[in-house]
Amino acid sequence: MSGNNMLSGKVWKFGDNINTDLMLPGPYLFRGEAEQAGAVFMNHRPGWLAEMKPGDAIIGGFNYGMGSSRPAARSLRNCGVGFLLAESINGLFLRNCVNYGFRAFECPGVTQAFEEGDRAELIIEEWTVRNARTGQALAVSKLPKMLLDMMLGGGIFPMLEAQGLIALKTAG
């Protein structure tokens, strides 16, 4: 990353224990990526996809992303969510955020500090997020460089491609 890399997004709040089924419903598991992206929170919060704008932020509570290893993080990325901040993130879900290049960070206190509709300004290099309405700044939990690089670089596939370890998707 270079220069001033503030990510700014309107905040949508989701609660504790948001599971991967809610983001990527079972019946969509074997559909294409685009269809999966169109199903995010379809049962949990119908109509949300139509309201949210690309770049908007999700704020979650504890154990965000609990559940199966399905690529729900890919769906959030594909439907345009700019970044996610949560009190805590489930291990397997965090793994898939890194794998699929979706910006997701733990940020204790974030549910208190933001109300729905606020604007969150995230500066990853400084590991801080600011509430544009209240001016309150919070520390974001650091991710080791290797994982951050993968996450910001679009995930595992582009990285392995760039290193010549796997073939490009279009090849062959």
């Binding site: 290893s69 690529p71 397997l92 793994r95 898939n96 794998n99 699929y100 080791p144 290797m146 994982l147 995930g155 595992i156 596939f157 392995l160 290193q163 370890l165 796997i166």
Partner: peptide
């Protein structure tokens, strides 16, 4: 782990 993790593991020899 996830499917992409397996490609990562067999090409780099590591995981996290």
């Amino acid at each position: 782990v996830g499917g992409p993790d397996m490609l990562f593991a067999i090409t780099t020899g590591t995981t996290w």
